[in-house]
Every structure is written in structure tokens, then in C-alpha cells.
Simulated assay, not measured.
Amino acid sequence: MGASVLMLIAMVDASLTQFVAPILWAGVLLVAGMGMAAAHRRRPVTAAPGGAHPTMVVHTALGMVLMAVLLVTMSSTHASTAHTHHGLSAAGLNMIVAGAALGYAAWSAHAARRAVRRLASAQFAAMGLSVLVMAAAAAA
């Protein structure tokens, strides 16, 4: 639940107030997402840390990493295209990120349908929707 709150605060700040630079939010989300994934140990579902289902831990960690990429993509829309000599333009990168966001949203919908508890289902759906909204904002 704390990861979702962190993502929400980062989204609101990056889109409305920009009290913290988006690249700093991206760093916080990356560290939190990777830390969450690293701290999670492979255990039976009933013995997962804090009662969290392993799918939820992976989904949340991946969502945080994807949200970090979307924050960077949104904040660099006016950057120069000097890096295109590497074979990938900013538009190409945006297409890859949009595809990843769509894939994540589809996985979120699937996980929400399969979740047993309503709270877990709502969290899967909310995270998928938030990534889609950020991807749409990045594309605009």
C-alpha cells in the first residue's frame, strides 16, 4: 500500500506542483521498486512477507519502475534529439514505453480479475490505470 501512495505522490507532484524534480522522483521510484523486488524472497504464497502475494510484489515493483520511466519520458519531451545517432529517436523510445505501459495495463486487468480479495483486485486495477494515464500524458 505504501508503494501505491508513493507513486500517487510522485504523479501529483510531477504533474501539478513540481516541488521535487521529476528526475528525483524517478530515482526514488526506481530505488523503491528495485528494493522491494530485492527484499522479496521466494516463499510459498501463505508465507509471503507481510501477507503480500508474490504476484502483487512483482506487479508493484514493476509498476514503480515503469512509472519512473514515464516520469523521465514526460519531463524530457522538449529535449534535443542529439541522441538519435544511437539508432533510437525520442519517438521510438516513447513507442517502447507506450507498449510497456499497455502490456502492464493488460497484466493488471488480468491480475485484477484473478485476485481473490477485493482490495488486491482494486490495487491491481488502480496501478494499471495510473500507468495508462501517465503513458497518455507522456504521449500528449
Rank of each mutant, 00 (worst) to 15 (best):
A90I: 00
M64S: 08
A101V: 01
A106L: 14
A98W: 08
T84S: 09
A100P: 00
G99A: 15
A82G: 14
L71Q: 04
T84I: 03
V69H: 13
V69Y: 12
G103C: 12
L102V: 13
L62D: 05
G103Q: 06
A82R: 10
S89H: 06
A90S: 14
L102Q: 13
S89I: 00
Y104D: 03
S89A: 07
V65H: 07
A79R: 03
V97D: 04
M95C: 13
S80I: 03
G92I: 08
H86I: 11
L71R: 02
G99T: 10
M67V: 06
G92D: 15
L70N: 03
A101F: 01
L93E: 14
T84Q: 09
H83W: 06
V65I: 13
W107T: 07
G87I: 04
V97Y: 09
T77Q: 13
L88E: 11
L66A: 05
A90Y: 00
Y104L: 03
T77Y: 12
L70P: 00
T81N: 12
A68C: 12
G63F: 06
L93P: 00
T84A: 15
A100K: 01
M74N: 07
L71W: 05
A106S: 12
L93N: 14
L66P: 01
A82E: 10
A82T: 08
A100M: 15
V65W: 05
A79D: 13
G103H: 05
M64E: 10
L66V: 07
N94P: 01
A79G: 14
L66R: 00
T77A: 15
